[in-house]
Design a binder for these strands. Structure first.
Length: 288
DNA sequence: TGCCCCCTGCAG
DNA sequence: CTGCAGGGGGCA
């Protein structure tokens, strides 16, 4: 699920909960999702947490690092103290039953900390993963080595995008901004929202998008991601933060999953098409 | 550059 | 029941 804003929120949640804590035990329930040896983690302290695109890096005191990808339905939920569910659920959403009682059938890895905290890695569809790497070689792993710039850095600019596009003749603009080797962290929802914001059709060939439009698009990507962060991420489906609570961004979507509804600009009806195998929503009237 | 697939659940 | 879902790897 998680795109940049959601993963960033989880990353910040980990900063506040597990940094400085010592791992006392690791329970792997689903081998498929855990690549490495649990024994490498026991007795180490969590030193720092980083986000790379939609992935989370957790650095441990022995030089190892965990690389976590939540893919579509992964969750990292922290319980301060086993047995005290009241705090986590206070203000939680009753509709989100499946994090109400952890661990549950979707809990695949459990980290127990010496201070009593417990971190649950849940994933309904089991697409996510946790991999154990060495910090020293993490940047060279296949997961991280080809990532494009973070959208909030100055490396993302019109010149950069024009250079990328000049090498990718037949690609649609939506595919460009969703490509993790071009921009880190933009996924399907924020791509649709960004293109709506910029008034650009997702179906446009990237090479036909003018420089001024790329400028606008970059602004929109940043604006939309920032809005997602401000609203605590989007929980259209299973996303929750470290406390198991949903975000509110889904209540602020302008175009994503608004098929058949009136365009917020009042000019047309939102249409759904498929681009790069992903459901794509746009207004044919104001996105050209 | 485009499918199919990993997996499970839910809406229509 | 069919189709679809915040991702992305592997294959032709």
């Amino acid at each position: 699920m998680p795109e940049l804003p959601e993963v960033e929120i989880v990353k910040r949640g980990l900063d506040e909960t597990i940094v400085g804590s010592e791992i006392a035990g690791v329970e792997v329930r689903a081998r498929k999702l855990f690549h490495g040896n649990e024994s490498d983690l026991i007795g180490t302290k969590v030193e720092a947490v980083f986000r790379h695109a939609k992935m989370i890096e957790i650095d441990l005191s022995n030089g190892k690092a965990l690389l976590i990808h939540l893919k579509m339905t992964g969750q990292l939920v922290f319980d301060k103290k086993s047995g005290d569910k009241s705090k986590r659920m206070a203000g939680g959403h009753p509709s989100n039953d499946w994090v109400a009682d952890l661990p549950n059938k979707f809990t695949h890895v459990i980290f127990k900390f010496k201070d009593g905290g417990i971190l649950y890695f849940n994933d309904l569809r089991k697409f996510g993963y946790i991999k154990v790497y060495n910090q020293s070689t993490l940047k060279e792993t296949k997961e991280l080595k080809d990532l494009g710039p973070d959208p909030f850095t100055k490396e993302l600019n019109e010149e950069y995008l024009m250079r990328v596009i000049s090498r990718r003749k037949k690609v649609k603009i939506k595919q460009i901004i969703m490509d993790q080797t071009v921009i880190s962290g933009v996924g399907n929802i924020y791509a649709d929202e960004s293109l709506f914001c910029a008034g650009i059709s997702p179906l446009r060939l990237a090479q036909d998008v003018k420089r001024s439009e790329l400028t606008k698009l970059i602004e929109c990507v940043r604006k939309v991601l920032k809005l997602g962060l401000e609203h605590g991420g989007s929980s259209e489906n299973t996303y929750v933060n470290i406390e198991g609570k949903k975000g509110e961004m889904q209540n602020h979507f302008k175009i994503y999953r608004k098929t058949g509804k009136a365009c917020p600009r009042g000019c047309g009806i939102v249409k759904r098409v498929v681009v790069g195998g992903r459901g794509t929503h746009y207004c044919p009237a104001c996105q050209r």
